[in-house]
């Protein structure tokens, strides 16, 4: 799979709510090759601060129009600069990068999509693709949570015919009160819905809980993981995560989010070797 450097043109920039923005870019080569779950490394301007590109996953891909969208939350300098981009401006991209989600077999059994915060982004395109090939009778559910209602995308953004959405907020300001994974476990305990596969994206602490449930219940889960990264193409080796090595549990080995991921199965990560520094949301100190 060829990786491309492409100068993209900004088509649309919309503040959806609070600090969450939707950016549509015209980037025909990358849009034409992109798959759900993959990402681009983006640079908004030349110069030394910020120095590095930032990774963003595709939230929507319009291959025939040569466009794609990203959803992002302004957390620091890079994303603040990005939020000032106007239609017609350009941005430098490297992509598409990473492995992407493995789509389920058409017309297969119930599926759960679990999104925490801005982690909803790659799941939107994935859900769209899955829905397009389903027959309509399957039980597809999105579990979508955020810290508070102000960080939750408007309902019409995530509601699709044939998709049942469960909302949660940590503070109870919208939907279920509590963590998204807690709500997911509650729904599982009711017993009416049992997914054959899980797709999830969100903070590492959330992903850990998803992985734990999936492993305990022998359910396949594809987790979209994030990390600080400098290059996105497997050269800097900065985006390492401890890998499980079932054949030799004591062995120390790392996988790299940019080239081995960003989509990982629940069992491929050695969760008990992740340091607390890694759970801090990936923002840069110079932000």
């Amino acid at each position: 799979m060829d990786k491309i450097i492409e100068e993209a043109r900004i088509v649309e920039q919309e503040r959806i709510l609070g600090q969450i923005f939707r950016l549509r870019l015209h980037s025909p080569k990358i849009a034409g090759a992109a798959r759900p779950g993959q990402f681009v490394m983006m640079r908004v301007r030349e110069g030394t601060d910020p120095l590095l590109r930032r990774p963003f996953s595709f939230s929507r891909i319009y291959a025939e129009k040569g466009d794609f969208e990203i959803l992002y939350r302004v957390v620091g300098k890079g994303t603040r600069l990005m939020s000032g981009l106007l239609p017609g401006a350009s941005a430098s991209l490297v992509g598409p990068l990473g492995n992407g989600f493995e789509l389920p077999a058409a017309g297969s059994a119930p599926l759960a999509f679990i999104a925490g915060g801005i982690g909803i982004a790659p799941l939107l395109e994935l859900i769209e693709r899955v829905m397009a090939r389903q027959k309509g009778a399957e039980d597809l559910r999105l579990f979508y949570g955020a810290r508070t209602a102000e960080e939750l995308l408007p309902e019409d953004f995530v509601r699709m015919p044939g998709l049942r959405v469960h909302f949660s907020t940590d503070d109870g300001s919208f939907g279920y009160k509590g963590r998204i994974t807690r709500m997911f476990e509650d729904v599982m305990a009711e017993g009416a819905f049992r997914p054959s596969g899980i797709y999830s994206c969100g903070p590492l602490a959330m992903q850990y809980n998803v992985a734990k449930w999936a492993l305990a219940n022998d359910t396949l889960a594809q987790l979209s993981l994030e990390s600080l990264m400098a290059c996105g193409i497997g050269a800097c080796l900065g985006c390492a995560l401890p890998a499980s090595t079932p054949e030799d549990p004591g062995a120390e080995r790392f996988v790299h989010v940019c080239k081995d991921g960003p989509i990982f199965s629940a069992g491929s990560i050695k969760w008990n070797k992740i340091l607390s520094q890694q759970t801090v949301p990936p923002t840069w100190p110079s932000n």
């Binding site: 990390s227 400098a230 100190p285």
Partner: peptide, 30 residues
């Protein structure tokens, strides 16, 4: 990339961080 006699796993993450006009790394010679 630097080569050693035996393969090396490298340091635990986080391994990189951006700083003004630069970046720091502690890859650990993976």
């Amino acid at each position: 990339k630097g080569i050693s006699l035996e393969p090396r796993a490298g340091n635990p993450p986080p391994r990189i961080v951006e700083t003004p006009g630069g970046m720091m790394n502690a890859i650990g010679l993976e």
